[in-house]
């Protein structure tokens, strides 16, 4: 073949993209601007907000949302939803706690079993979704209800109460606490270990998302699963894997809850699934999938942490907190919509 290329086809209507508009095209940019604005705002109205110890507290509050938001963000980029995340965290903690307690075993056995269970719940979510082709909203809503019932029912059946017996004096508790619920002293400030776990998980998730084949598959599965399947992307495996990743995050947070407080209330966690989704959406993940970032979810969680604690530092009436959270969500979603429209412009 000795053909010379035809004259390049360019569309004269497409203007040159400036670096600025490239930056503005990043999914997390809206959230980042919001986070910076919020930070400056609270720093101005409540000087105590800027103390290192206060920032550590804000980060801790953000990390317990953020750890789950990592998994939830990836899942949303992959085009699916999980409403069972809030109670799944507690299920994992209950599993570890009740198993270890009932059989009087080293708590690490319970921890390992909880991991298996959490991954299993994720697998089942994904598997049912794929097999039935039902929307993930319905499937995980069912899981949410079932887990809520199991949490309450099994805790009472096994432990005889609605909260688990304390396991703080059992073997392995101290080593598990050191890993899941300790603090690290940085220049005189106690920073909870969940902050570091969170940052590490965001880093790993970002790397997977942007620099590995799996990441490419996640974007493709969420963006257009039919197209992805047609070019040989293992969409089924990718989606099930994503649900299992969410399960893993639930396990990490569940273990933190268990070892930080030694007992778990079986009714906890309900409603938190929305916080994780809110963090992911504020961070620029599209509800329809195919777009977003792990860092965005982290920034979303940080915004939540700042707003939640900032109101306390500023000593404001918290009655309005939910209103502002809703407003923030609405604004973030609108920004995302605009971004998506721009990206899809022909």
């Amino acid at each position: 073949m000795t053909m010379t290329a035809t004259a390049p086809v360019t569309d004269e209507r497409v203007g040159k993209k400036s670096t600025l508009s490239k930056i503005l095209g990043r999914p997390e940019i809206g959230a980042l601007v919001g986070a910076v604005a919020l930070f400056i705002f609270f720093a101005a109205v409540a000087p105590v907000f800027l103390q290192p110890a206060s920032i550590a507290t804000v980060l801790y509050g953000a990390s317990t949302i953020g750890i789950m938001a990592v998994g939830v963000s990836l899942l949303m980029i992959g085009g699916e939803f999980d409403l069972s995340t809030g109670v799944a965290v507690i299920s994992s903690a209950l599993m570890a706690s009740l198993f270890s307690w009932y059989f009087s075993m080293n708590v690490w056995v319970g921890v390992a079993l909880a991991l298996v269970m959490s991954l299993g719940v994720g697998f089942i979510n994904g598997w049912i979704l794929i097999k039935t082709q039902l929307p993930s909203f319905i499937v995980t809503l069912a899981t949410f209800l079932m887990l809520t019932g199991l949490n309450l029912g099994l805790t009472r059946a096994i432990g005889g109460s609605v909260s688990t017996p304390s396991i703080s004096n059992m073997d392995g508790f101290d080593s598990a606490k050191a890993i899941f619920a300790s603090s690290v002293n940085i220049a005189g400030v106690e920073v909870k270990i969940t902050v570091f776990i969170w940052i590490a998980m965001v880093a790993v998730a970002s790397w997977i998302l942007l620099r590995t084949r799996v990441g490419n598959w996640i974007f493709a599965s969420g963006g257009d699963s039919n197209a992805a399947r047609a070019v040989g992307v293992p969409v089924v495996k990718t989606k099930i894997g994503l649900f299992m990743a969410v399960g893993f995050c639930a396990w990490v947070l569940g273990m933190h809850n268990l070892f930080a407080f030694a007992t778990v209330q079986s009714g906890e966690g309900i409603g938190n699934e929305f916080l994780y989704i809110i963090a992911a959406v504020i961070g620029g993940c599209l509800l329809t999938g195919g777009y977003g970032s792990a860092i965005g979810g982290a920034i979303g969680a940080f915004i939540f942490g700042m707003a939640n604690k900032g109101i306390v530092y500023a000593e404001w009436n918290p009655d309005w907190f939910k209103f502002f959270l809703g407003l923030m969500l609405l604004l973030a979603t609108i920004v995302n919509l605009v971004v998506k429209r721009r990206a899809e412009q022909k």
Binding site: F219, A220, G223, D224, N226, A227, V231, V233, G290
Partner: peptide
């Protein structure tokens, strides 16, 4: 395929190598 050719939100190069990265 007419509709299934590409994932429209993904960059061109990612689409180009999708599934065979």
């Amino acid at each position: 395929y007419q509709d299934l050719a590409v994932v429209s939100l993904m960059p061109i190069w990612r689409n180009f190598f999708l599934g065979s990265e």
